[in-house]
Design a protein around this nucleic acid. Structure first.
Lengths: 140, 140
DNA sequence: ACAAAATCAATAATAATTATCCTTTTTATT
DNA sequence: AATAAAAAGGATAATTATTATTGATTTTGT
């Protein structure tokens, strides 16, 4: 089975759980994200997808990224300074975040940092975010 | 010596290092931040300071928060979803971040989580950010 | 006290994102 | 397969958070 067919099957399954539909635009957005190493902004996804699908709208990209996040197919990296970024991975992992160019990259470490952490009683933790801040190879 | 005099002396000293001046607006912004337990947005700081200093502008609050961050007197918590928040503390510490109401609170833990972390070679780390995500006592 | 520099207030502009509104596509039902 | 209902798309307006601009005011160094 072709790669794109695998993606369509996965998306259809996951989207249906939330009452969403499979569309060509959603496939294109997800497909692009799954091909890149970095974590692009909505704008970057838009520009890339636009090349293969010239009529797609930026608003559609935003809406579809949101829909994919909703059904757990991708994750959103909102770091505050500048635009949010999107990540094909949904498992817990950490990132390096360049303060100069804003690029976010995966950092592969197996340790569960929260393991030994004493969480406040009155707070229900559902997850956590760890980012290493600094300068990437290009910017240092 | 009165509290406000202590603040003025501290601000004057730190601001001068960056070529900045001591102004009543800066004192008011810093003073407010040092009195609250939570980490307010620029808008919230503006509304609070406005009560004592009705002519102050929102843009001034933004500029002054930025100036205070620049000279290391406060820190900025940019978490992406919504407005940035400001914190009187500048030492390394962690936060709980409520996904419902957006409130950010301090989490006091002594451990240095980065101690055992293997940082990628081509990345120059200057700091890190850890946030515990979930629901606060009011929202759970 | 006075000139130069910095900051202020008001407001315009920008950037990122979300909402609106009408058309098109997809899905469910006959 | 035809068709109605629901969902999604595209274009663009609106919103939100923030930054830039500009001319008036305040602060600082001499």
């Amino acid at each position: 089975m072709k790669r794109i067919e695998v993606i369509k099957r996965l998306l259809k399954e996951k989207l249906e759980l939330k009452g969403g539909n499979l569309t060509e635009q959603r496939v294109a957005v997800f497909d692009y994200l799954s091909q890149v190493e970095n974590h692009p902004t909505a704008e970057e996804v838009f520009l890339a997808v636009k090349r293969k699908m010239p009529k797609i709208s930026l608003a559609t990209v935003y809406k579809n990224l949101e829909a994919l996040v909703e059904c757990g197919l991708i994750s959103k990296l909102a770091h505050g300074d500048g635009a949010a970024r999107y990540d094909i991975r949904t498992d817990q992992h950490y990132h390096t975040h360049c303060l100069k160019c804003g690029k976010i990259l995966d950092m592969d470490i197996e340790d569960d940092l929260l393991a030994g952490l004493s969480i406040p009683e009155d707070f229900v933790a559902t997850g956590y975010r760890l980012e290493l801040l600094g300068h990437c190879s290009n910017c240092k």
